[in-house]
Amino acid sequence: MSRFRNLLLAATGVAALGAIPVATQAQQTQRPQAQSQAQAMQPAAKKTGLGRIAHPDEVKAWDTDVRPDGHGLPPGSGSVKAGEELYQTQCAACHGEFGESAGRWPMLAGGAGSLNREQPEKTIGSFWPYASTAFDYIKRAMPYGNSRSLSDDEVYAITAYVLFLNDLVKEDFTLSKENFLTVKLPNQGTFYDDDRETTERSFWKKEPCMKNCKAEPAKITGRARMLDVTPDSKTGPKVD
């Protein structure tokens, strides 16, 4: 995009300025209540010519995302064995030697069969629907505080090791771009799209109760104070 063309476009914009205030005023009188969602966005009339074409290397540098269908997986591979060594130095301090978590950092392994219990343990093996999510996330954001420091082979290896910690692959397994889609996570089938508008239809009431809505006076069944977990809880106030 030449600087000259940008200037020309800007000049066209200036020429059109005379017509703008009328529309702007009309818009302002609509704001804020009367304007509907649909009206809120004016369609872009035509191309502005602003911005420039992205260089393929720029897209490659940032577009690292991976999808469940394997789209975005880079060439490479890594073994459980290689992953174990990397995991112990790069991951175990927060996630625990066996993915059990250290402190309050996320658990990565275990928790199978816990999802309908009182204390569900949501790990890659017990909860996550797709292995691609782990690969994508490790590659973009791990290790914590040193993102983007792992090679693609290292990301494959660590992913393989985390799958191994969840008993999803064997000890001698090597994960690669080619065999990635053979790995299925056990909980994939239990996710379903938002259905609140049908399953919670009863929350759309025409006219809620206003008088004598409960037969009995309300009784207190739980109190935050009993737990005493609020930061800097203070004693009661003085009232005049």
Partner: peptide, 26 residues
């Protein structure tokens, strides 16, 4: 298609009592 990244699978999905989860509850 959606990417199913970390913040829309392991997080920000709503685990219900039966152990199944709602996703895309935006």
């Amino acid at each position: 298609q959606p990417w199913h990244h970390r913040e829309e699978t392991s997080k920000y999905t709503d685990l219900l009592a039966d152990g199944r989860s709602r996703r895309f509850t935006w």
